[in-house]
Amino acid sequence: MMFENLIPKEEVETYHIVPADEDRSDYWKQHLNYAVRLGNEFKSKTTITFNTTAGPRSVETTVWSLTENHISLKGGVLLPLNSILNVHF
Rank of each mutant, 00 (worst) to 15 (best):
N69W: 12
Q30E: 14
Q30L: 08
D23C: 06
L6P: 00
G76A: 13
V77E: 05
H16Y: 05
S65C: 07
T67V: 13
P56F: 02
I84C: 13
S25N: 01
T61C: 07
N51P: 00
T49W: 02
T49M: 06
A35K: 05
H88R: 12
V77N: 01
M2A: 13
T49D: 05
T62S: 06
R24G: 06
A54L: 12
G76N: 14
N69K: 14
N86R: 13
I84V: 15
Y34C: 02
G75S: 12
T47I: 11
V87L: 06
T52C: 06
V77C: 02
E13T: 02
S25A: 08
K43H: 13
V36H: 04
P80L: 06
S58K: 01
L85V: 08
W28T: 04
Y27C: 10
L79T: 11
E13H: 00
E4P: 03
T67H: 05
D21A: 06
I17L: 08
N69F: 15
P56C: 06
T46I: 11
F50M: 03
K45Y: 11
N86C: 02
T47R: 03
L6V: 08
S25M: 03
L73N: 08
K9A: 07
T52Q: 08
T47Y: 05
D21V: 02
M1C: 11
K45M: 11
S44N: 14
L38E: 03
E22Q: 09
R24Q: 12
T47L: 07
R37Q: 02
P80C: 12
L6Q: 11
F42M: 04
N33I: 10
S44P: 03
L78Y: 08
R24V: 01
N82T: 15
K29G: 03
V87K: 02
L81K: 03
I48V: 07
D23P: 00
T49K: 04
T67S: 15
G75D: 07
A35Y: 13
G76Q: 15
V59C: 10
I84A: 11
V36C: 01
S65T: 14
L38V: 15
L78A: 07
S58W: 04
G75I: 13
E60R: 07
N51L: 01
A20Y: 07
W64Q: 09
P56G: 08
E22P: 00
Q30G: 12
N86D: 13
P8G: 12
R57E: 04
M2L: 11
A54M: 14
E68N: 11
Y15H: 11
S44L: 14
A54E: 12
T62C: 04
L78C: 02
N5F: 13
K29Q: 13
I84K: 01
F50R: 00
V59R: 01
G55I: 01
E68W: 12
P80V: 06
K45V: 04
T62Q: 08
N40V: 04
S58P: 02
R37W: 02
P56V: 03
R24F: 04
P19M: 15
L32T: 15
S58L: 05
W28Y: 14
L73T: 10
R24M: 09
N40R: 15
E41R: 14
R24C: 08
N5T: 12
L66K: 01
G76P: 00
N82R: 15
T62H: 10
T47E: 03
N69H: 13
K9Q: 06
F42K: 08
P8R: 04
H31L: 15
H16K: 03
I48P: 02
V12M: 09
R37V: 10
